[in-house]
């Protein structure tokens, strides 16, 4: 995979407000060098440079350099405990909620280090949404679940009803719930709840959606629906998904990153990004033997 396909990286910010474009503290997008190449992705809507995450004294992941491409699905795979969720949580600063978590290195979103000073976490999370492993609807009505994000972030909307409908349609849930918008979201099935969480996430018009094993609590039919939905969403949104399901990664993603954690001589296990490339390449002809061992099921 060739790196640095583009000479200049223009912030893919189609947002008319232009808040993100060229703010103070602008960081050059990392293009890699001979020693530490940034593998793969074309435009680097999110770029990680020498990312290292600690929980207290424990170093969970280190040395992650990668560029994620916009409007495509990137899958992060790897054995349990290798730091996939940890890396994913860095991308919208959800690691801030973990006491003792510390992030070293750069997480650049459109060239802005989101861990830099003066960065508004709220704004970051509005642009980089998240869907969790376990469906976590709020104990409110279906309507209020979707309207919550736009309300709390003070989005100016002409018609909340329209916005809710658009988000629910976007999450392929509208037809199933249009007659019971005022009912409590807990009455939905697990798969519907997860699609509601996706609707909730897209209601704030994010650019990137992070998903941490979004289908692991769902049955195969609900999973298939979410996978179809992801393919549809990838036309509009950038999706980064953590999954344990190899077939899922192969089916839905355009690019795949393989993480693993290897113990050093002191016995500390630290996660690293082993390989990042097109999904085709990772599953067809991986460059690293650890990747091959993992995807063929001989490891982890």
């Amino acid at each position: 995979m060739t790196r640095a396909e583009h000479d200049t990286v223009t912030p893919a910010d189609k947002d008319a407000t232009g808040e993100i474009a060229q703010p103070p503290g602008h960081v050059e997008v990392w293009r890699g060098n001979e020693h530490s190449p940034v593998e793969g992705a074309p435009d680097g809507v999110i770029t990680l440079k020498d990312l290292e995450v600690y929980y207290g004294d424990f170093r969970a992941v280190t040395d992650v350099n990668v560029q994620f491409g916009s409007k495509e699905i990137t899958a992060l795979i790897g054995p349990s405990g290798c730091g996939k969720s940890t890396v994913l949580r860095c991308l919208n600063r959800m690691n801030d909620l973990v006491p003792g978590a510390r992030v070293v290195g750069t997480v650049a979103y459109h060239g802005v280090d989101i861990y830099g000073p003066d960065v508004d976490v709220i704004e970051v999370r509005r642009r980089v949404g998240m869907v969790f492993q376990k469906p976590n609807p709020f104990p409110k009505s279906i309507y209020d679940n979707v309207a919550y994000g736009p309300r709390v972030t003070g989005m100016k909307v002409d018609s909340m009803d329209e916005l809710v409908e658009r988000a629910l349609r976007g999450a392929a849930l509208w037809d199933e719930v249009k007659d019971k918008l005022k009912q409590n979201a807990f009455g939905l099935s697990g798969g519907q709840q997860q699609r509601l969480c996706i609707a909730r996430a897209i209601a704030t018009s994010p650019e990137v959606i992070l998903m941490d094993e979004p289908c692991s609590a769902l049955d195969p039919i609900a999973t298939a629906k979410i996978e179809d939905l992801m393919a549809e969403l990838a036309k509009t949104y950038t999706i980064i998904i953590v999954t344990h399901n190899m077939q899922q990664a192969a089916r839905v993603s355009q690019r795949t990153g393989f993480f693993t954690a290897e113990a050093d001589e002191m016995g500390h296990r630290t996660g690293r990004l082993v390989e990042f490339d097109t999904t085709e390449h990772i599953f067809g002809n991986p460059s690293d033997e650890r990747t091959e061992a993992y995807i063929t099921g001989r490891f982890g």
Binding site: F132, P139, T153
Partner: peptide, 24 residues
């Protein structure tokens, strides 16, 4: 998960407490 869900949508900790945690 309720708190995480609210914060991930861009709510402030105060909004999360006031609109999600206390009512729940």
């Amino acid at each position: 998960e309720i708190r995480a869900g609210s914060l991930a949508l861009g709510a402030t900790p105060w909004q999360t407490t006031w609109k999600q945690v206390l009512p729940a």
